[in-house]
Design a protein around this nucleic acid. Structure first.
Lengths: 200, 200
DNA sequence: GTCTATAGTCTGATAGAC
DNA sequence: GTCTATCAGACTATAGAC
């Protein structure tokens, strides 16, 4: 086994970068190898020299990004200040939507279509992580650090509200007439969860 | 122009019904005419006897459903009780996610991929309606009937939180381990918006 | 109105020269 | 490693018999 050369690494990265752009916009089936090749400035057979198939590119992307995507939740610290930990999570998730919209849409496309390629990760890795953090949130609520709340549905609402701005960006832009949604979104979402969670 | 016969109406409806099922699961490009034909128990050329093209079926679905989908927002009554009107809207939207998940996913797929077929309706019909209702919400807030809130972002959060349960159902099911999400969702979402909107 | 057969196009993947 | 050429299969849509 040889180490990958600089060229190999550069081309692999270019393909993944191009794949992220195109898959996130058109979904798996809506994307063609030609689009990826053009976006990566490579020929179609050359793309298939680095990856065995179109599906291999897609799966490499999903697997490589899942950890990054779940990282903010993993960071939630049971020993930290409850309200501050949760508000930091909300803020980080919204910033990720703003700064990495392609990643958000890639997962949204995959899940919307039934998660055929990562269903195992949802029932395994994802469920475990959410269950673990749900227990932390429940303990915080029991200790009176935050108001009582269903921890699983709290997580769903944070996901829903933050990822909405990336996934449905076209609609948000249409309704706002092109104004930048993020300053308002940050203020609104922060206020919403602060009111929900702050004890009386 | 003749009236459509019963058979014509029945077949057209069967195609639209089948299209809704398949398009909402696989998106426009991910869906084949064969899938629609099989689902509708018709032959492929027979499907194209009723609709000029695959795209025509898709557009007929989107246009036919947009009004229905926006109806709960249109119902928001400026002369009603502010909090009650908004909570009814939240509840109705969540019930629609539960009862019409295919419709929700059809729009989600379309918007996620940049709304190539209904972009005009977003900047026209949808924006007008939201702007109109945003003014109503702002007036309620100014009158002290609800807490001050950015009306556009309020609408986004209602859409995000309610449609999440339909659009990302696979993920919700995976995390909850198959438990029915809706009883908990209704309680959580209702509580969340009540706390956000109820004046002190 | 509905079918079989098929035209014509697109696309994923491979062969083979360089 | 990268390219040109191309195959095989899938797909939308049409032609034409019944």
């Amino acid at each position: 086994m040889n180490e990958p050369t600089r060229i190999q690494r550069r081309n692999r990265d270019a393909i993944l970068e191009a794949g992220l752009t195109v898959f996130s916009q058109y979904g798996f089936r809506g994307t063609t190898l030609d689009q990826i090749a053009t976006e990566a400035s490579l020929s179609k057979p050359n793309v298939l020299y680095y990856f065995a198939s179109k599906e291999a590119i897609y799966i490499a992307l999903l697997e490589g990004l899942l950890d990054t995507w779940l990282d903010p939740l993993r960071t939630l610290d049971a020993d930290g200040d409850a309200l501050h930990e949760l508000m930091s999570y909300v803020t980080r998730k919204l910033e990720m939507s703003r700064d990495f919209p392609r990643e958000s849409r890639l997962f949204a496309n995959e899940i919307l279509q039934g998660a055929p390629h990562i269903h195992g990760a949802l029932t395994g890795e994802l469920k475990s992580l959410v269950d673990e953090k749900a227990a932390v949130i429940e303990a915080w609520a029991a200790a009176g650090r935050i108001r009582p709340v269903d921890p699983h549905h709290l997580v769903f609402s944070i996901w829903a509200m933050t990822q909405h701005y990336a996934d449905f960006d076209v609609q948000v832009q249409a309704v706002l007439g092109g104004r930048d949604p993020y300053p308002g979104a940050l203020a609104h979402v922060t206020m919403l969860f602060e009111r929900l969670l702050t004890p009386d």
